[in-house]
Amino acid sequence: MGCFHSKQVKFPQGYEDPNVLAGETSFSVSEVEALYELFKKISSSVINDGLIHKVEFQLALFKNSKKENLFADRVFDLFDKKQNGVIEFGEFVRSLSVFHPSAPFNDKIEFAFKLYDLRKTGFIEREEVKEMVVALLSESDMKLSDEVIETILDKTFREADTKQDGKIDKDEWKDLVERHPSLMKNMTLPYLKDITTTFPSFVFHSEVEDANA
């Protein structure tokens, strides 16, 4: 029974079987295991409890935990499906799956829509878009007058808001994205295609053989 020693690995709360996660996402079992290596690093960077707290998410994204960023907050909020203030491993994998190069384009469109629907009303409203443009300008060196911002919003809504009710619904959003696929550029992470080579140490922790034994 030399090769059948059981690994007494203790997994933290929120850990889910890679086989189950692979079945529900665009990732293979090996890729889910490689993502677990990444997850462990991020989730132990400040509070070592196997969960990603917002401060750890910001630290991983910006290498600076003090940086306030509206968009990072929104992404964290969407990853945190249980809305309990932390990202568990399963939530991490399921959310990242949307960013996989082979994930359905429609899933990416839906995710981006939720991201930009700041107040979760089911519409992207003009005020929300203005808030996001202002937030983008404040994080960059770009400076635009309020007049120019309003001109940009006018142009955007003239094109996107085909029903002319001052807000963008999901169908209008889909139409806009189809005309401008570059708007979805951030929704695909090429890194996810070769995650097993980025985090090769997953091999040493792999449970795949055990699962097949």
Binding site: L38, K41, I42, S45, A60, L61, F62, K63, N69, L70, F71, A72, D73, R74, V75, L96, F99, L115, Y116, V129, M132, V133, A135, L136, L137, E139, S140, V148, T151, I152, L153, K155, T156, E159, L176, H180, S182, L183, K185, N186, L189, Y191, I195, T198, F199
Partner: peptide, 28 residues
């Protein structure tokens, strides 16, 4: 002549907060 203004979402997509590739630089 003034250049045509960008689409607001093109501007927004420039945010670093929307570029999750930073997560994958967490190696070590």
């Amino acid at each position: 002549s003034k250049p045509a203004p960008m689409n607001a979402f093109e501007l927004i997509s420039l945010s670093r907060g929307l570029n999750l590739s930073g997560l994958f630089e967490t190696r070590g």
